[in-house]
Computed example of a mutant assay.
Amino acid sequence: MEFNGNPRQAAACEQQFWRPMAELLPVFEREGIRLVLEPHPDDWVEDGKRAVDIIRGINSPLVSFLYCAPHTFHQCDDCTGIMKKAG
């Protein structure tokens, strides 16, 4: 899954992201559904390190980060730094 939305309206998109997440997380946890998020070009969050922070904020072992090497240039062009942060 991507962080769909408009990077020029990141704050509004982030609010829209958290609202359904609060409802969906209990379902994911109950059903054992894994959610993998990827910052993607032209999403409301493109920076890989910022995406890792958001995913950690979700605080669920079922939600993780996908690093897509071809999108490195959109994720602040810091492959090593992003991977170190993501662990």
Rank of each mutant, 00 (worst) to 15 (best):
F73P: 08
N59G: 11
K85D: 05
D47K: 04
I54D: 00
T80Y: 12
H71I: 03
Q16W: 11
L37N: 01
V52T: 00
I58L: 12
H74K: 13
F17P: 01
V63T: 02
L25Q: 07
W18H: 08
P20V: 09
E46F: 02
S60M: 04
E46V: 05
Q9E: 15
Y67F: 14
N6E: 07
E2F: 08
A12K: 14
Q75K: 07
F28H: 08
A12V: 10
C68H: 10
I55Q: 02
A10G: 01
A86Y: 03
H74Q: 13
A86H: 03
V27G: 04
F65W: 09
F73A: 14
D77Y: 08
A22M: 10
G81S: 03
D43V: 00
L66K: 11
P61D: 14
W44M: 09
S64A: 14
W18C: 06
T80I: 11
H74N: 14
R34F: 09
I58E: 02
P20L: 11
N4K: 15
E31D: 11
Q16V: 07
D43T: 10
P39K: 08
I58F: 07
R50F: 09
D47A: 07
E14N: 05
V63E: 03
M83Y: 09
I54W: 02
L66C: 15
D78F: 08
I58D: 04
A86V: 02
I33Y: 11
W18K: 07
V36D: 14
E29T: 06
C76K: 15
D43N: 14
V63D: 01
I58R: 03
V52P: 00
Y67T: 00
A51D: 00
Y67M: 05
E46R: 13
H71E: 13
R19V: 13
D78V: 04
C76Y: 11
F65C: 06
Q15R: 15
E29Y: 09
